[in-house]
Design a binder for these strands. Sequence first.
DNA 1: ACAATACATTTGTATATACAATAATTGTAG
DNA 2: CTACAATTATTGTATATACAAATGTATTGT
Lengths: 148, 148
Amino acid sequence: MNVEEILQTESQIPLESRTIIHFLLVNNKINESISNVLKPFDISPQQFNVLRILRGQNGTPANLSTLNDRMITKMSNTTRLVDKLIIKGYVDRITCPSNRRKVEINITETGKKELKKMDIAMSNAEKKILKNLSKSELKELNNLFNKL
Amino acid sequence: MNVEEILQTESQIPLESRTIIHFLLVNNKINESISNVLKPFDISPQQFNVLRILRGQNGTPANLSTLNDRMITKMSNTTRLVDKLIIKGYVDRITCPSNRRKVEINITETGKKELKKMDIAMSNAEKKILKNLSKSELKELNNLFNKL
DNA sequence: ACAATACATTTGTATATACAATAATTGTAG
DNA sequence: CTACAATTATTGTATATACAAATGTATTGT
């Protein structure tokens, strides 16, 4: 994935700008791939993200602010996102007994089962995206990201 | 930016998944920063992208499919995106005389002037995002991206 | 106990985006 | 030269997202 080629420019782009643009281009590719993986499951990347967070809770219910904190893409409307997962039967939501302002959101058995299928598809897609990088290159990439 | 810390998990995530998640997290940070830079100019990242492409044309008008090809984030509605830039007076659009199916889109002088201001703000933001990476680390990052 | 404040979520609304359908123009095969 | 296919852009519509306002509940100070 070459920046100059895609942008069709001959001019010299400053290294910082080039890096950011490069980053956005790669990100786009990743997003596309993720969307394709999830499309058969009729679930959006954000919904998938929420499901994974809930599973990671290991049975401890999550409330909305917890979800928001841990979501990759923060969005102001986790309520409606959870609504959609409820309709699909992947999560349930009850008002927190000890503090009725809060809600308790849990992944259902159906949700876990479906998530497992998605994981496999996702894992394959990830490997495909990153197939040209060696283990050490992957580590290097993570190290660089850590610095940001 | 540490993945495990943000995801609040103690479990070992496979290197590939970790890289992708890491990528998405960094991307989110970049997007946020870009949005903040552009907010005072009342322009979306996509609109900014289109303006830059048009400037890069050096006077050669672009039609919609050219824009679509070069845009970082492809979206199906470049028409309405251009509409908004026209309202702001940053670009103009005429139907192509030689092929009336096509349109010719150009950046205006006002557009160029505003874009110059945005560039400065954007460049500062880019430097800020990448401030913890050395020149050689930036190059390394670009090299890794090239392989994807 | 009451009012004021803070908290957690939900709802309203405007804008953005994705995808499909439509319209307008051009190219082409017979 | 006409019918049909291909190209390019626009419009319609449903869903997603961002941001602000509203709702319901809990906490705090007096």
